[in-house]
């Protein structure tokens, strides 16, 4: 077997390992940060290299509070950030400008489709996003 094939095999196993690691962060993030929010099983994950972003389309309802949980650590130990755009692709918010948090809660005054970009400001690696929801009324009632 040539060196080329050895390289291919090693690369493939690295790829499988990286993806499996990417998948593994989802249950731990969910357990740590989802709290009493409902989660309908949807998640997004990606290996981000060289400034790549993962793009997510999601419908947010008025009257619900959402929990956005960006998970992962880049090769430079930075956390993933979120750029939030409206459906016309106008930038509404970049969480990087507001510090690092384990999760962000979000409420909208009207039902909207938003586009979320998940990215690392530095380094590369696996990143994932989980979104939970609950009634905003329940949040305000402190239940």
């Amino acid at each position: 077997m040539s060196l080329r094939w050895v390289g291919i095999i090693l690369l493939a196993f690295y790829g499988l390992y990286a993806q499996s690691g990417c998948r593994q962060i989802i249950p731990s993030c969910r357990a740590s940060y989802m709290g009493d929010f409902s989660w309908d099983g949807r998640y997004w994950k990606a290996e981000l290299y060289g400034g790549e972003v993962a793009e997510i389309y999601y419908t947010f309802f008025r009257g619900l509070r959402y929990r956005l949980i960006p998970c992962g650590r880049s090769s430079n130990q930075s956390v993933p950030h979120l750029r939030i755009y409206n459906s016309n692709r106008t930038l509404v918010l970049d969480t990087r400008e507001h510090g690092e948090r384990k999760y962000w809660d979000l409420e909208l005054s009207s039902t909207q489709l938003l586009i979320i970009q998940l990215y690392y400001s530095e380094g590369e690696g696996c990143a994932s996003l989980l979104i939970g929801h609950k009634s905003a009324e329940i949040v305000r009632a402190g239940k």
Partner: peptide, 16 residues
């Protein structure tokens, strides 16, 4: 359709 956005203690409020 650009909302006004406020952030308080990790809670983002978007008013459209």
């Amino acid at each position: 359709k650009t909302p006004t956005t406020t952030i308080k203690q990790g809670v983002i409020q978007m008013n459209f």
